[in-house]
């Protein structure tokens, strides 16, 4: 009797867990699959399933100069943002990692705060700030705004990599007569490089994808890809956007697989 009840209990537990996890799996996978399938439609609408299949929207993409222009801008800003974020973020991480002083804790909270605060409020604040300073919006102001919201990713993964670094290595390097700078260059940086790369990659992706800050800091000359796509979708449900999405998904999967191999991305995000 108790055996029966306990097996029923175990079965109900496992069934519940598997059903919920399977729903979660479908919820995560389905949208990506749907976008890929619909991007190959031969029709003029986002009807699912598509009436037929073709590459017409991908070839239409070749002439979409507005999207090309926006994508080029987004790439430039994301590259600048990543470079500056790594430079500032890695230096700051070296200073605050492993340190228990209150100053280091305060700085850590400060550097992480853009992750939880509404980025749109910061975007508006940045626009007001630059107009008070008399600076008009430009790629430079965009990079500055993006660094604030992207540098936390670099700091987070670099601090985590530093925390896993064995201090004995640094001590033996010092006791063998290496200067602090030499130890940094030959021991610390090579060992934390995968952590820095993972952070740089996420910073790049989130700058490329940023909307709330770009919304306020761009103008017609600095059109950004996600905002261009958002405006296209608000106006009309354009199938070209499906083809853009298909290209972006393909690039993301390729980058993800490479970063997993090179930097062990999934371990560094947890």
């Amino acid at each position: 009797m108790t055996r029966q009840r306990s097996s029923l209990e175990a079965v109900s537990f496992h069934v519940t867990m598997w059903v919920l996890a399977a729903s979660c799996f479908l919820l995560l996978v389905l949208p990506t699959l749907v976008v890929i399938i619909v991007s190959f439609t031969s029709g003029f609408s986002l009807k699912f399933p598509p009436p037929g299949y073709s590459f017409r929207w991908y070839s239409a993409l070749l002439d979409a100069w507005q999207l090309h222009f926006a994508a080029a801008n987004s790439l430039k800003v994301a590259a600048g943002t990543t470079g500056l974020s790594v430079l500032l973020g890695v230096a700051a991480s070296l200073a605050i990692a492993r340190s228990e002083t209150w100053k280091a804790r305060v700085l850590d909270s400060l550097f992480m705060s853009p992750l939880v605060l509404p980025a749109l409020a910061f975007g508006l604040a940045a626009l007001m700030f630059f107009s008070v300073m008399g600076l008009s919006v430009s790629p430079l102001t965009l990079v500055i705004g993006h660094v604030v919201v992207c540098v936390p990713y670099v700091v987070r993964t670099t601090v985590a990599a530093l925390a896993q670094l064995n201090p004995a290595l640094l001590e033996s390097s010092a006791s063998l007569g290496a200067s602090n700078f030499y130890t940094l260059r030959r021991i610390t940086l090579p060992l934390i490089a995968p952590g820095i790369m993972a952070g740089a990659f996420i910073a790049f992706m989130s700058s490329f994808d940023n909307v709330p800050v770009s919304l306020f800091l761009r103008d017609a000359r600095t059109d950004m890809l996600p905002i261009r796509m958002w405006q296209d979708l608000e106006g009309k449900l354009d199938v070209t956007i499906a083809a853009v999405s298909g290209v972006m998904i393909a690039i993301t999967i390729a980058a993800l697989v490479i970063m997993e191999r090179v930097a062990g991305l999934s371990r560094r995000l947890r």
């Binding site: 949208p31 976008v35 986002l46 992706m205 958002w230 449900l237 999405s245 998904i249 993301t252 999967i253």
Partner: peptide, 17 residues
């Protein structure tokens, strides 16, 4: 990880479809 790194406009677009 894929949805985390896919552009949010792309993910949202999927839901429109």
């Amino acid at each position: 990880l894929l949805p985390l790194l896919t552009s949010v406009v792309v993910r949202t677009f999927a839901w429109i479809v």
